[in-house]
Design a protein around this nucleic acid. Structure first.
Lengths: 222, 222
DNA sequence: CCGTCCCTCCCCCCGGGGGTGGAGGACAAC
DNA sequence: GTTGTCCTCCACCCCCGGGGGGAGGGACGG
């Protein structure tokens, strides 16, 4: 069973270069090429490739937007999208992954890695350049900037930290009191201690601090 | 310049196997071994390895907790942690990455990939097994996606969105009024509209929603 | 045993924030 | 012109949330 490929890049030289590399593999078949995003969508619809190799920087429609269309309202089942680019800028990486890309390789990758990436994607997994993986891991771990974890945060008592988390979930003092099975007066004094220790004005700033320092993380369930 | 390695696994067979593989590389030096997490922490403190190969399942202290100690309150600079495990269960993967691991390989990986991973980690980047990469990408794309991006948020007028952002920065109505050069009354009515449209109770919940839906992003400057 | 820390709770005060119900002007669309 | 939306602002009321200041009991360590 062959893997059907669509190559999308605005530079013809790159396209043919890729085609030559990829056609060395018996089970690869380059079914088409496209020079920009719009054309890529049309080709994908008509040729039903398994994997689409996509450049980020293209006229008319860039790679991120193209990815979004391919994975959202494109052919069903959607093709696997492998981003190929010279730049690993954050906005590209995160944008592309958010849009549904399954792979992200820099153009300085070896041909072996490119071929491996296509096989990996076709198998349903994902493969990224090491530097991209690093960014993603860092973003996930949220440890890119842990500015105040030990300094101020561990000045809080366990109970105070607990209150802070609930405040950061958007709960009112009454609700927090209910959740912790104490009176509202207690919650207020705990929260008062938190604000004083962290040098904050009100609970709103406490919420901001909680998110900025990873006390709570966007996307995690309560 | 050699790369100093510490091998941590509760099974001696695995440890010596790894050692044999790794010592084929001229620039690798296995400086020590440990059979569990506690021992690993002590060895790391004394031997200062560049990269620690860590099994997840170990007696006394598991790999995730060990990772957290190594990267947080361990030696400075902290070693790069490469998780080696037979299982790619979600709780392991996410826990380890959150704790500060830079790599995550399944034990069925080829020796070439293992060696490559160590080099990549030592260079400051990250490397994961394809299946793990897939989970991470999905978690990343899926987490920040589904909440309420267009549905409710684009019901807001530009001005209302602007107010929401400032609220999410922790500003009071008076401060927002100053920033936008309007009266506080105006800010209040805008904010009132935001709360009504989004079905929120108070500005605190607005902050939470802003973070959860990417209206503002932790770590971004104001 | 006594000091310290933490958790718990109370009272009083009051200011900011949110809810209600408007009103007027600018501007685009119909 | 008329309608609608958006931005701007006003007055009023009320209550939650935060500050001040204090107090009692349990746990822990010196």
């Amino acid at each position: 069973m062959t893997i059907r490929l669509l190559i999308v890049d605005d530079q013809e030289l790159i396209r043919t270069g890729l085609r030559l590399i990829l056609e060395t593999q018996e089970d690869f078949e380059v079914v088409g090429e496209a020079a920009d995003g719009r054309e890529a969508l049309a080709r994908a619809e008509e040729l039903r490739p398994d994997v689409v190799l996509l450049d980020i920087r293209m006229p008319r429609m860039d790679g991120v937007e193209t990815t979004a269309h391919l994975t959202a309202d494109g052919p069903t089942p959607p093709p696997r999208v492998l981003i190929l680019t010279t730049f690993d800028l954050d906005e590209y990486v995160f944008g592309a992954l958010r849009a549904g890309a399954a792979g992200f390789l820099l153009k300085d990758a070896s041909r072996e890695r490119l071929i491996e990436a296509i096989r990996v994607l076709h198998a349903g997994d994902a493969l990224l350049s090491p530097s991209v993986t690093r960014r993603l891991v860092e973003a996930f771990a949220g440890r890119i900037r842990p500015p105040t974890p030990p300094g101020l945060l561990n000045a809080l008592t366990p109970r105070e930290r607990e209150v802070l988390v609930l405040v950061a979930r958007g709960l009112s003092n009454t609700e927090i009191a209910g959740r912790l099975v104490v009176t509202e007066a207690t919650v207020k004094s705990h929260l008062g201690a938190v604000l004083a220790k962290l040098g904050l004005r009100d609970r709103v700033q406490a919420v901001v601090l909680a998110y900025e320092n990873g006390v709570v993380v966007a996307g995690e369930p309560a």
